[in-house]
């Protein structure tokens, strides 16, 4: 009997959750920033996962056509110095750059938030150690820290990920810690503690949901930052190695032919900027949405 009631209760709770999620989604979709950012990113995702839908050219094979042909109906974005179709290279690069943005954000987001949560909630020694560590890492400019780590690990896509992961958690830890310190003092947490709930339950059911929003918003701008930094590294020759197409390294190739083939520079950059704008719009919309929800 009791278990039956319990089940019914659970069912109700789940239903309420679904209704609330539907409401949130409806409000979010009414926000123009969120909506346009979302649409841009969905299109970018489709391009990233199904590049073959958009072009028949091979992005890597060298003997595809004449070199340095300006944009035409045949080659939408022209061809590069090896005669490869620039449109195909830009399209096939999308996947790597999207990965650079998303994968390099998720790991620091999770790890940094967890550490910030621990530091903020337990305070004392854990807090002190993490904060002092942050102080030291903050003394290095972001790019310089990434470069230093790549120097140790060597060039390549994988090492870029590792370098950005090692650096990225700092900001998330900081943000979440500050929020946790604020939330920890609020009455509903005190009440949960008085009610005798365990730390784990309090942290994950009560503190985390109320402390995570600034980190979520920051994650969207961090994704842009990662994409731009990683592209910068590839531009310098420290990241993705040719002939693999990546927007940063495409720009670097274009830089050498700037006088004769502007199309090699313009188009990869436009794709990068549009993706970046997609993330930024999404973040802007999220900020508005969270502010409205907080009221």
């Amino acid at each position: 009997m009791t278990s039956n009631l319990n089940k019914q209760g659970q069912h109700l709770v789940i239903q309420q959750h679904l209704i609330r999620m539907k409401d949130s989604l409806r409000i979010a979709l009414r926000n123009p920033s969120f909506l346009s950012g979302g649409i841009i990113l969905i299109v970018i995702c489709i391009i990233a996962f199904f590049p073959q839908w958009f072009t028949d050219y091979d992005p890597v094979a060298i003997s595809a056509g004449d070199p340095l042909v300006p944009p035409s109906t045949n080659h939408l974005f022209g061809t590069d110095n090896f005669g490869r179709d620039v449109f195909a290279r830009v399209i096939y690069a999308t996947k790597i750059d999207l990965q650079l943005a998303v994968v390099s954000t998720i790991v620091p987001f999770v790890v940094g938030s967890l550490l910030g949560l621990l530091a903020g909630y337990y305070g004392k020694i854990i807090d002190m150690v993490i904060m002092r560590f942050l102080d030291v890492l903050m003394a290095f400019p972001f790019t310089v820290l990434v470069i230093s780590i790549i120097t140790i690990l060597g060039n390549g896509l994988q090492n870029i990920f590792i370098a950005i992961w090692l650096v990225g958690w700092i900001a998330f830890a900081r943000l979440v810690r500050a929020e946790v310190l604020r939330v920890k003092e609020s009455e509903f947490i005190q009440a949960a503690r008085v009610a005798g709930f365990g730390d784990r339950r309090i942290i994950f059911r009560h503190v985390l949901p109320n402390a995570i929003s600034p980190a979520v918003v920051y994650a969207t701008s961090y994704a842009v930052l990662c994409m731009l930094t990683a592209a910068g590294m590839s531009f310098l020759g420290l990241g993705v190695q040719p002939p693999t197409p990546e927007w940063g390294s495409l720009l670097s190739e274009g830089r050498s032919f700037i006088g004769v083939a502007w199309w090699m520079t313009l188009f990869p950059g436009i794709f990068m900027a549009v993706t970046g704008i997609g993330f930024s719009l999404l973040g802007d919309g999220l900020t508005d949405f969270l502010r409205a929800k907080g009221r």
Binding site: V224, M272, A273, T275, G276, F279, S280
Partner: peptide
């Protein structure tokens, strides 16, 4: 904010 400065 979304544009790479080296591209610019």
């Amino acid at each position: 904010i979304s544009m790479p400065s080296f591209w610019l």
